[in-house]
């Protein structure tokens, strides 16, 4: 392994002097010249808001809750986004409809704490919570930065169009009985002794 530090005793005085001259005169001066040339290069700055930046779809901006292809809420209130959140700005409460489908009774994001890290999106097993390219969320009152489910929930599927958790998971809900999820056999008749 080469030692990047030039040790005073490791080389002859002359060699060291030569190296210093090389460093100072060539390397540094060349650097100065190259940086100086940037004076004549077009700037990269986007003059927002007069000029709108191009936002990439994976940009981590405003958080939304999406619906599955059937139009139902994707969020199953599993709490994984809340626990993944490093600033603990997500709070929710699970509730259940008559047919066993889990959904959040309330879902609250305190955007005044949110750091847009996207951990919630990564943790979400149902692709319900997604970050969008919208970053224009400033408010004059901090209280207005607290968003409830009504503010977060959109009508569509967001970035991921296919995901439909309850079509895969074995729990039965309204409109999907036991044995009707992907790759499932019909329910077992426990009274039968046939193999």
């Amino acid at each position: 392994m080469s030692d990047p530090i030039v040790r005073p005793h490791s080389k002859s005085w002359l060699a060291k002097f030569g190296e210093l001259v090389k460093d100072t005169l060539t390397s540094q001066v060349v650097t100065l010249w190259r940086v100086f040339r940037h004076l004549f290069v077009a700037t990269d700055t986007v003059q927002y808001p007069e000029q709108q930046p191009h936002m990439f779809s994976r940009w981590r901006g405003r958080i939304i809750l999406t619906r599955d292809p059937d139009g139902e809420e994707r969020c199953v209130a599993c709490n994984l986004c809340a626990v993944a959140c490093p600033v603990d700005c997500i709070a929710l409460q699970k509730t259940e409809d008559e047919e066993g489908r889990w959904y959040p009774e309330f879902f609250r994001i305190n955007f005044s704490r949110c750091i847009m890290c996207g951990f919630c999106e990564e943790a979400c097993p149902t692709n319900a919570i997604q970050l969008t390219p919208d970053f224009e969320m400033a408010e004059y009152k901090r209280q207005d930065m607290v968003w409830e489910k009504a503010d977060l929930l959109i009508a569509g599927t967001g970035k991921y169009h296919e995901t439909n958790f309850y079509r895969v998971a074995g729990k039965s809900i309204g409109g999907k009985d036991k044995g009707e999820a992907r790759n499932e056999l019909p329910p077992v008749d426990v009274r039968s002794l046939l193999p």
């Binding site: 626990v83 700005c89 709070a91 901090r142 607290v146």
Partner: peptide
């Protein structure tokens, strides 16, 4: 040690 939602639980009442 992994208690969640501390900055959002009561944020509906007061964000501070």
């Amino acid at each position: 040690h992994r208690y969640s939602g501390r900055t959002a639980m009561n944020a509906d009442k007061n964000v501070h």
